Simulated scan of single mutants.
Amino acid sequence: MDEMNKLFYNVIENKRKTLANLKDSIEDTEKDLLTLMLEAGEDTTDTQHRLSDSELRDDLAIFFLAGHDTTSNALSFAIYFLAAHPHIQTKARAEVIEIFGDGDDAVYPTSSQCSQMKYVYMVMKETLRVCPPAPNTSPRKNTENFDLAGTFIPKGSSLTAEIYALHHNPAVWRDPETFDPERFGPGGESELKAGTGLPWLPFANGPRQCIGMNFSLAEQKVVLAMMLRRFTWTLPVDSINKDHIVLGKGMGILSPKDLRVDFIRRF
Results as ranks from 00 to 15, higher is better:
Lys221Glu: 10
Val261Trp: 00
Asp258Pro: 08
Leu259Pro: 01
Met226Gln: 10
Arg57Tyr: 09
Ala84Leu: 01
Leu56Phe: 03
Asp24Glu: 11
Val172Arg: 06
Arg183Glu: 07
His87Asp: 12
Asn5Trp: 07
His68Tyr: 04
Pro86Asn: 10
Tyr164Gln: 01
Glu30Trp: 06
His68Gln: 08
Asp180Lys: 13
Phe231Lys: 05
Pro132Asp: 12
Pro199Met: 04
Ala84Trp: 04
Ile240Lys: 13
His87Gln: 15
Arg140Ala: 02
Ala83Glu: 02
Gly67Glu: 03
Asp43Trp: 08
Asn142Gly: 03
Gly206Trp: 01
Phe63Glu: 03
Asn5Val: 13
Thr137Cys: 00
Ala83Gly: 07
Ala225Arg: 09
Arg266Gly: 11
Gln116Lys: 14
Ser72Ala: 14
Ser72Leu: 06
Pro109Arg: 09
Leu201His: 09
Thr45Gly: 14
Glu27Pro: 14
Thr232Gly: 13
His87Gly: 05
Ile88Cys: 09
Met1Ile: 02
Asp32Asn: 13
Leu201Gln: 00
Gln89Pro: 09
Arg93Leu: 03
Pro133Thr: 05
Leu51Thr: 01
Gly67Met: 08
Phe203Gly: 10
Lys249Met: 15
Glu42Gly: 02
Ile26Leu: 12
Lys23Met: 06
Ala74Trp: 04
Thr127Cys: 10
Pro256Leu: 01
Phe203Cys: 08
Ala66Met: 04
Asn142Cys: 07
Phe8Leu: 10
Phe231Ala: 00
Ser76Pro: 07
Glu42Met: 03
Cys131Ala: 12
Ser112Leu: 10
Thr35Lys: 11
Leu128Arg: 02
Glu189His: 05
Glu95His: 11
Leu166Met: 03
Leu159Thr: 04
Met117Val: 13
Phe152Met: 09
His85Trp: 11
Ala165Met: 00
Lys15Asn: 13
Gly188Phe: 03
Met213Glu: 15
Ala161Arg: 01
Leu159Pro: 03
Thr127Arg: 01
Thr234His: 04
Arg57Gly: 03
Ala134His: 02
Gly101Val: 09
Leu60Lys: 09
Asn21Thr: 05
Ala149Cys: 02
Glu162Trp: 06
Ala194Asn: 15
Ser52Arg: 08
Ala61Phe: 08
Asp2Asn: 07
Asp58Ile: 11
Asp175Lys: 03
Ser138Gln: 14
Asp43Arg: 14
Ile99Leu: 14
Phe63Leu: 10
Phe267Tyr: 14
Glu144Gly: 01
Cys210Met: 06
Asn145Trp: 04
Asp104Asn: 14
Leu254Cys: 07
Val246Asp: 01
Leu75Met: 05
Thr196Glu: 13
Ala204Ser: 15
Ala171Met: 06
Ile26Ser: 11
Asn10Gly: 06
His49Trp: 01
Asp262Trp: 12
Asp28Pro: 15
